[in-house]
Design a binder for these strands. Structure first.
Lengths: 141, 141
DNA sequence: CAACTTCTATAAGTACGTGATACGAATTGG
DNA sequence: CCAATTCGTATCACGTACTTATAGAAGTTG
């Protein structure tokens, strides 16, 4: 009989992730963009121009929601649209330079906030979290 | 000179937490309550009855937002209000049995979803995450 | 007890999501 | 080769979840 699997309690991890997330959120700039907007921008940054419906599916929202989100992001200069030369129905959404810069600023702000929180964390705990980080990244791949 | 501190990159942790959180969110029931509603209910469950403004501050929303949230939660039977015998201005918000049951169902659903995700994670990674879990809980205390 | 402060509620506006539906562009079968 | 269908996006009507500004009742205080 093989050894029992590691005792990682999904419910505990779920709650912990939610609470850390809330903590991080507290330190947000006052007029932060929405979760979906941020996630969509990050996706556009990572993967390049994408279709509306593709984004909607990937982000788990409906197509009308993505249409509206892109409209707002376009209005704020964070993204723009381009026609697909190969298919006249398609809209390709792209992140703009301002969008990338916003993501960059957002990362700095959050990093600073988290760094402040980490002051109260023991070196041991910090090391444990650092050790688990690559695993968390693979989980959320 | 003491050893250099562990190299935990706040920006990386922030992004990883956001992405794990998004993953967990994907597997939500279709008509899930809002982040703030869930967090507020959990707080009421943990800490017992609380005032409106106390909840608003703790959750990082404005007082009118909390008034409205409590109204909605009350309408759905998840929470109720009681007068404070010591101060006629105060409303004490309490979680109801239905509220507790909702939290419990929500935890099961999310745990099941996360458990499904963990199938694709190596034993080593799972062990690393399990080892870091108490540290994450202390961070989010 | 009049003036101030505290606590909650209301009002008006915006962002963000939904389902239903419209409509032009692409694909397809007879 | 064109009528029917499917695909990709937009629009509409609606509900929720926030914001700021303000009102108003209950406590506190000089």
């Amino acid at each position: 009989m093989p050894a029992a699997r590691t005792a990682l309690d999904p419910a505990r991890l779920t709650v912990a992730v939610e609470r850390v997330f809330s903590l991080l959120r507290q330190g947000n700039p006052p007029n932060d963009i929405s979760l979906t907007a941020a996630s969509t921008l990050r996706r556009l940054e990572r993967e390049g121009p994408r279709r509306l419906t593709e984004l909607a599916t990937a982000e788990g929202v409906t197509q009308p929601a993505m249409t509206q989100l892109v409209q707002r992001m376009e209005r704020e200069g964070l993204a723009d649209r381009a026609a697909d030369p190969a298919d006249g129905r398609v809209v390709l959404v792209r992140i703009t330079r301002a969008g990338s810069e916003l993501l960059e600023r957002r990362r700095s702000v959050r990093a600073a906030h988290l760094a402040a929180l980490l002051v109260d964390v023991s070196d041991d705990d910090e090391a444990l979290i650092a050790a688990a980080l690559p695993a968390l990244e693979r989980l959320a791949k």
